[in-house]
Amino acid sequence: MGLWADAKNIRDKDPAARNVLEVIILYPGFHVLVTHKIAHFLYRHHWFFLARFISQLSRHLTGIEIHPGAKIGHKLFIDHGMGIVFGETTEIGDNCTIYHGVTLGGTGKDTGKRHPTLGDNVLIGAGTKVLGPVYIGDNVRVGAGSVVLKNLPANCTAVGVPAEVVRINNKKVCPADDLDQQDLPDLYQQRISQLEARLSKLEARLQGEYPPDRPTGEQ
């Protein structure tokens, strides 16, 4: 696999892309993959200044900032790309999709491995922040605008601030719908509604409209 496969992958995943040549010439998500391969090669051979110079030049050209130390697998699809940041120890698996405004960053207090690791087939929605040396398992989908601060298991969907798992292996783990980039579940509103319902029930009980709850086992 190589850059041609990356370009074909972008063409296949982006309904607006008409052909591979258009992707190669016009798509910043492809351009940054080209420059990152060069910068990463230089980084691995300890040409740190030159590697960083190329990555910063690419940042000005594409709006995407990828540290030359980041490790990127095959067929990464960066859609739009503006505002994306990948930190130095970021690792991304194969066939991942990342939308604009995503940060794979550090927390400012970690040393050594301080940025996220993404498994294969991961989708990160627009504006999401994944912070610290967390691991995102294979086939995970993270909803737009989420903040991920802890590991996520494989085959799950997570949304929210901080992000919480709402599905694992396509089964609900809390009252929420599956990931939809246009209609994400609002976990906080759901909990507020649940609290309001409980409060209404307690107020009604105080007014004598509900009998008191009986102890378990009492007839």
Rank of each mutant, 00 (worst) to 15 (best):
C96F: 08
G108R: 07
L21Q: 06
L26T: 14
A17Q: 06
M82D: 01
H40F: 04
H115F: 10
N19H: 02
I24F: 04
N151P: 09
S193N: 10
I192L: 12
R205A: 15
R59D: 01
T107K: 15
Y27T: 04
K13L: 15
Y99S: 05
L179E: 08
N139G: 13
H115I: 09
G108Y: 06
G160Y: 11
V32D: 02
G83N: 10
V142F: 12
A70C: 03
R198D: 05
L42V: 01
I38C: 00
N139W: 12
L21F: 11
R214V: 13
P212R: 08
V134W: 12
S55N: 02
Q190V: 03
G119V: 12
I78Q: 10
P28S: 05
W4N: 05
T62K: 00
D178T: 06
Q219G: 10
K150W: 06
H45Q: 07
D6E: 11
G137D: 12
L104F: 05
L206I: 13
H67M: 05
D120E: 13
T107R: 15
Q56P: 00
E88V: 03
G93C: 07
R214C: 05
K113N: 15
V34D: 01
A204S: 12
Q219W: 09
H36E: 01
L202S: 14
T117H: 14
P133Y: 05
V148M: 11
L50G: 00
I38G: 01
W47Q: 04
N121V: 09
W4A: 09
D79A: 14
I84R: 06
H40P: 07
M82S: 14
N139I: 11
D6F: 08
L50F: 09
I124C: 09
L199A: 14
D6R: 06
E91N: 06
D138I: 13
F30V: 02
Q56V: 02
I92S: 04
P162I: 12
T62I: 01
V85N: 07
L33Y: 02
R191E: 14
V32R: 02
V173E: 05
E65M: 02
D213T: 06
Y188K: 11
E209C: 03
W47G: 03
R18F: 04
T157N: 05
H40L: 03
K150R: 15
H100P: 10
F53K: 02
L104D: 04
R141N: 07
P15K: 12
R214T: 14
L118S: 12
G143Y: 08
Y43R: 02
H80P: 06
S193H: 05
Q181F: 04
L50Q: 03
G93N: 11
A126T: 15
G73C: 09
V165R: 07
K171C: 01
L179F: 10
I10D: 12
C96T: 12
K37C: 02
S193K: 08
H40A: 01
E209G: 02
S58L: 00
D180C: 13
K113A: 13
S146V: 13
S200D: 13
N9D: 07
T35S: 01
Y99P: 05
H46P: 01
F48T: 08
V173R: 04
G29D: 10
